[in-house]
């Protein structure tokens, strides 16, 4: 088990390195750089611009830039923003909590709602409830999350004359304000995952409810509640866990737009602006953050598999 985890971690590190190098190089291939964008329309001379490029190291070949950046990175120095010259690490750490809150809550809400909807649909298979829930799930699966967010904003504004506050408040300072601001983004981000989880939960529960071991549990005279919530659900979570890794990718991708829409100062906003500005150090740092988050989640999911399924935990036969 430990060897398995370490191997997974090893793969994760390799993936992160590859992603970093890929983004590092790709960003520099995109036309235009930070200097030309900053200095356009200012009439600054070409010499001055070149001097600025030299200061940022942009005149070196890509592989030299990469090497210098890596040398800094291993010391914990991810460089400074090309704009305000602030260290990327500081810039970044200030924004991480918002994205983590948003992402985690969206995942939690999506998974919890998805499981609930999936269980209800599976248990009431073939009924009107089941059909309604399935239509509802497909609808959410096919509508992008920012559209859901817009619809919710409009609906609340129209019917309740309410809209979320525009300035972010720390939950520790103004919990109500924070909750008001986070509610719609969290829900909008969570819906896609919810729909996917609901569909998968429904189908794997149906498969499990028709299985031999469930027949045995029923033959023992166990209450149907236990049959569904203990045996069938637990067996279905194995499939759902796989989905959660993919859901995280959707949620993280979603934060970029949602954070901008709701004025949430998270890494999504940061990376959005940094890409437009060709602020390479910031983009690369954000990418590493997202890749790292992803790798850690996947390892966690693998560990959860082992926690749920003894066949993974104990390998093969002891008899």
């Amino acid at each position: 088990m430990i060897g398995y985890t370490l191997r997974r971690l090893g793969y994760g590190v390799v993936v992160m390195c590859l992603v970093t190098i890929f983004v590092f190089v790709i960003m520099r291939l995109v036309p235009g750089d930070a200097v030309s964008l900053q200095l356009q329309d200012t009439g600054v001379s070409k010499e001055a611009a070149d001097a600025l490029r030299a200061e940022f190291g942009l005149d070196d070949p890509v592989w030299v830039q990469l090497w210098e950046w890596l040398a800094g990175a291993v010391r914990g120095d991810l460089g400074a923003s090309f704009y305000n010259k602030e260290p990327v690490v500081d810039l970044f750490l200030a924004r991480v909590p918002v994205t983590v809150q948003l992402g985690l809550l969206a995942m939690l809400v999506g998974t919890a709602l998805g499981l609930t909807v999936g269980i209800i649909a599976a248990v009431t298979r073939g009924s009107v409830t089941d059909s309604a829930l399935r239509v509802f799930a497909v609808a959410f699966l096919s509508v992008p999350n920012f559209v859901v967010a817009l619809l919710l904003l409009t609906a609340f504004a129209l019917w309740f004359a309410w809209s979320p506050p525009l300035v972010y408040a720390e939950p520790t300072e103004d919990f109500i304000g924070w909750a008001q601001q986070m509610a719609i983004p969290v829900f909008a981000l969570g819906t896609g995952g919810m729909a996917a989880v609901a569909r998968l939960t429904r189908s794997s529960m149906l498969e499990s409810l028709g299985s031999d071991y469930i027949r045995t549990v029923r033959a023992k005279g166990v209450r149907e509640r236990t049959v569904v919530l203990k045996h069938s659900l637990r067996n279905s979570t194995i499939a759902v866990l796989t989905l959660l890794g993919l859901e995280l990718a959707t949620v993280l991708g979603g934060t970029v737009i949602i954070e901008r829409m709701f004025g949430l100062p998270g890494t999504g906003q940061l990376i959005y602006q940094a890409v437009l500005d060709r602020d390479y150090p910031v983009v690369v740092a954000c990418t590493i953050f997202y890749a790292g988050l992803f790798v850690i989640t996947i390892i966690l999911i693998d560990l959860l598999y082992a926690l749920v399924d003894p066949r993974i935990r104990t390998g093969k036969a002891l008899s």
């Binding site: 299985s211 031999d212 071991y213 469930i214 027949r215 045995t216 549990v217 029923r218 033959a219 023992k220 005279g221 166990v222 209450r223 149907e224 045996h231 637990r234 067996n235 749920v308 399924d309 003894p310 066949r311």
Partner: peptide, 25 residues
Amino acid sequence: LRQLRGSELAMIFQNPMSSLDPLFT
């Protein structure tokens, strides 16, 4: 029926491999 199953009427099946829940001891 639930009360009778497992108390008065018990049943075993063809395929023991798949008839026990794999996730519980």
